[in-house]
Structure formats: structure tokens, C-alpha cells
Design a protein around this nucleic acid. Structure first.
Length: 259
DNA sequence: AAGATGAGCAACCGCCCCCAA
DNA sequence: CTTGGGGGCGGTTGCTCATCT
């Protein structure tokens, strides 16, 4: 049983957007705001798929987009975030005000990958290219799983162990002992942005956010601090959202330093 | 000058997740 | 609890333009 198509493809335009289409889309969203992308094309008088409209708006027409070259600081931030998050372009984009996931993804594939290769770093693992394969295996992304959950049963234990390995490899622990010793401190490795002590972070005390919330995935099922729903704008145009304090410019890059 | 090749990027595709009914 | 619609995301495609031969 296949899914119904998101729109009637037979009567929709594809390919590059014309100036007229852009104008229509901008005018409609200015008047009515974003939302209900499926019905938007018809309402706006566009022969386009709703998804296409959404993409065009988010990646190109949004007024808060920052066009132009990436700065060296942005480069380094993308590299660090990618080493932590993997190909979670939307999460990475959420940390770079004015940049879109698509833009960052393209930039990564065209510029940063090469840049890392030139430095002798494998862009997939963020480890030296000539490092023995064994040390680089399993390294994918930082898992947001919560390995400290206590459950009975062998399967649970095995799963727990797997999660530890995933996390440990992502942050560079190699032995089981390293994992046990350092697991509890993982949250400190990706610290919250530097802020003056007297300034609570978005109304939450520093201890009020769980790991997943501090990474900007408040609605994650991994959330353990009860902040679900308090900020649902992760990777949605950086509006009203302040992961790592980037939006307000208080990010301390040093806090993202990988070993 | 013209064709071949590569880089950059906008746009599409299809899968997945969330949530309301 | 189940189901299906809506929207989001990552991967991929294909077009355009620049550079090379």
C-alpha cells in the first residue's frame, strides 16, 4: 500500500522557479504566513507541488537568509558540528543563523570535504586518513541515546553496550575502560554556550536541560528534563531558537573543542 | 573557437516522523 | 491503538557556468 503523492504531479511545474512564481510565493507568505504547504500552491495560484514551494521558500526566498560566502569561522563550526552530529544538516543549519540545511550540505560536499582531505582528515570519521581502519570503524555520529537507563534482561544490556560504543567512538574513546570512565562526563564535552553566571539560559538554569535539549532537540524522545514543547523551532529557520547561543552570538567555540 | 570536463548549487525524490482523528 | 495526512530531512539528480585541452 503506497503513500498517496503529496500533490497532483500531472499539473505541476518542475525545475527552476521563475521570477513570477517567486513573487507569488513571497506575496502569499507575507500575507498569510507559512503553513499548510499542501494547499498553499493552489491558494497562491502556483502550479507547484507544496513541497517545492516549501523548499523554495526555506532555501532561497526567506528574508532572513544570509547569502554569500561562508566565513572561516563558519567553516570550522560546520566541521565541529559535523563531527558531533554527522549528516544532520538541519541541526547544523540551526546553529548557523541565515544558513539553510541544503546550503550547508552543498557546501560540505563541495568545499569542506576537500578541505578536510587536504588536511589529511577523513571527512566521514574526522580522523586522520592514515589511521588504522580498526580505530575508525563504527564512527558515525553522536548518539543521543541514554545508556544509563536501567532495564533488566540481556538484550537491554547488549543494546546499552552498543550505544556506549557508538557514543564512545564518536568522541574518541577506544577502550571499554575509557567508556566506563568517561561516559558520565559526555554532557560536559559538548557544553552549553558560555554565558555570564548571572544570566540564566533561556529561562532555564544550566542544570535544567537534559542533553538532548541542550543540543536543540527538545521534542526528542530522548528528552529527560521535561522541556518537551518549550521550543519547537529546532532547525526551522532559526526563529526564536538559540541552540548553543549562536543566534545571540554568545557561542564559545572552545566549548565545542574535540579532544 | 569549440568540445570536454568538473564544480557548484537549486531542486527533486522518497523515506521517515509526528500527530490528529 | 491504529491509521493516514502533512511536513521535514538527507541523499541524489541535473542544469548552468567556468575552466581546461
Amino acid at each position: 500500500m503506497g503513500r498517496s503523492p503529496c500533490c497532483e504531479k500531472a499539473h505541476t511545474n518542475k525545475g527552476a522557479w521563475t521570477k513570477e512564481e517567486d513573487d507569488r510565493l513571497i506575496a502569499y507568505i507575507r500575507a498569510h504566513g507559512e503553513g499548510c504547504w499542501r494547499s498553499l500552491p493552489k491558494a497562491a495560484g502556483l502550479l507547484r507541488c507544496g513541497k517545492s514551494c516549501r523548499l523554495r521558500w526555506i532555501n532561497y526566498l526567506r528574508p532572513d537568509l544570509k547569502r554569500g560566502n561562508f566565513t572561516e569561522e563558519e567553516d570550522e563550526l560546520i566541521i565541529k558540528l559535523h563531527s558531533l552530529l554527522g549528516n544532520k544538516w538541519s541541526l547544523i543549519a540551526g546553529r548557523l543563523p541565515g544558513r539553510t540545511d541544503n546550503e550547508i550540505k552543498n557546501y560540505w560536499n563541495t568545499h569542506i570535504r576537500r578541505k578536510l582531505m587536504n588536511r589529511g582528515i577523513d571527512p566521514a570519521t574526522h580522523r586522520p586518513i592514515n589511521e588504522p581502519a580498526a580505530a575508525a570503524t563504527e564512527v558515525k555520529t553522536l548518539s543521543f541515546a541514554t545508556p544509563t537507563v536501567k532495564e533488566e534482561g540481556e538484550d537491554q544490556e547488549e543494546e546499552k553496550e552498543e550505544k556506549k560504543v557508538v557514543i564512545s567512538n564518536a568522541v574518541g574513546f577506544n577502550s571499554k575502560e575509557d567508556i566506563e570512565k568517561n561516559l558520565i562526563n559526555l554532557e560536559l564535552r559538548i557544553s552549553l554556550p558560555y554565558q555570564s553566571q548571572s544570566e540564566p539560559l533561556n529561562g532555564n538554569s544550566a542544570t535544567g536541560l537534559c542533553f538532548s535539549c541542550s543540543l536543540g532537540i527538545q521534542k526528542s524522545k530522548e528528552c529527560s528534563c521535561g522541556n518537551i514543547g518549550t521550543s519547537n523551532n529546532a532547525s526551522r529557520g532559526n526563529i526564536g531558537y538559540d541552540f548553543l547561543g549562536l543566534k545571540s552570538g554568545v557561542l564559545d567555540y572552545r566549548s565545542l573543542e574535540m579532544k
